[in-house]
Nucleic acid binder design. Structure first.
Lengths: 179, 179
DNA sequence: GCGATGTTACTCGGATACTAACTGTCCGAGTAAGCCAGG
DNA sequence: CCTGGCTTACTCGGACAGTTAGTATCCGAGTAACATCGC
């Protein structure tokens, strides 16, 4: 319902985990989602859009995953929002001036941008400035300052444990021939 | 689809017509809507909300209508938006931090506002500042500067013509008694 | 001539359908890794 | 011991429903004004 959708929130949280320097190896979307208790398939859908916007690079196949396409300091919050929500305008002017009965009768035509639209565009510009002023690295540092010491290592351990469990689940590898 | 709804646009256009000093008499919602070619019933619904927010005062009965409750310089664009869209937040944080698997296992609890939420709140504050900086009088003056001279008089004439037509439509007033 | 009164129809106000977008879910194509057989 | 090939199942990618909010519309209650009727 809000202008900035939930997908942006999911993407930002996942990207903050990816911004950790320890995450040199690509992280899978499923792991990141289950780590935070959010729908895994939806996260994959969101990361698809991030990949189209050239913000992350996808590695396919086994042990595949996503990694940042640029340094975390070079990705702003606004980039993420535009990549997912599609640069949706804050306000779509319907040019009501042109439908005014007095205007249509006379030969006068409105020129320039609508005054109301101009105010909205200015507000949108201020909002975008504030969103572009913060980068992923900035957010990651601010979050890390609040977390307990050694939290990044715990995250790495959790991911490693999950990978080990998946490897162990690989039962009786290939003792059977075809058909 | 946009965050600032179409109802806000309708309301602002109508309020600009009401902000004209010539509109000392209350103007009906139907006249204002048909003057601009927008749905009349929807305008009435929107003005209902404006009246609940104490921005306009409704005069009921015949020749009724709306007039501004305060001087046009004391009503900001933000007031109109909040009155109609209900101060909807730009972003609703779902507190994903609390759902993190590592956080739920340990006894650590996140405190303060989420860093992502803080960025969004700052952007929203900048946007609201820009919207609150412009008043109805300011917009009306800027619009009047672009319009041809004597446009306000034409609007008054148009409204008077409509009123006269309605009066003429009142045929054979009451020559018939009951039943 | 003046006042009370009934009619009028026009006003606002809330309750009711329709449309579109976001959220969430599912299934299919592609591919890097790992095991096994053969040399 | 080394190399080639094959199975594996896990990955991303796009296509498919459910639900909520906004948009537009309709009908009912209330009321100020007007013309009429009585005094």
């Amino acid at each position: 319902v809000a202008h900035i959708s939930t997908g942006v929130e999911y993407a930002l949280h996942c990207l903050l985990y990816l911004a950790e320097p320890a995450s040199a190896a690509p992280a899978g979307a499923r792991d990141l989602a289950q780590l935070q208790g959010i729908p895994a398939e939806y996260v994959a859908k969101v990361f698809t859009r991030l990949e189209k916007a050239r913000l992350v690079i996808a590695s396919e196949g086994l042990r595949g995953g996503f990694r940042l396409a640029r340094p975390a300091a070079a990705i702003s919050v606004l980039d993420v929002i535009d990549a997912i929500d599609g640069e949706k305008p804050l306000f779509d002017c319907r040019e009501i001036r042109g439908s005014c009965a007095l205007v249509t009768r006379t030969a006068w035509k409105p020129r320039g941008t609508c005054a109301i639209h101009a105010v909205m565009l200015e507000a949108e510009a201020r909002m975008r400035e504030a969103l572009a002023a913060h980068s992923l690295a900035d957010l990651a540092a601010r979050v890390a300052a609040k977390l307990p010491a050694g939290f990044g290592d715990e995250v790495a351990d959790w991911l490693a444990t999950r990978a080990a469990a998946r490897a162990a689940n690989r039962r009786t590898p290939a003792t059977k021939v075809k058909s």
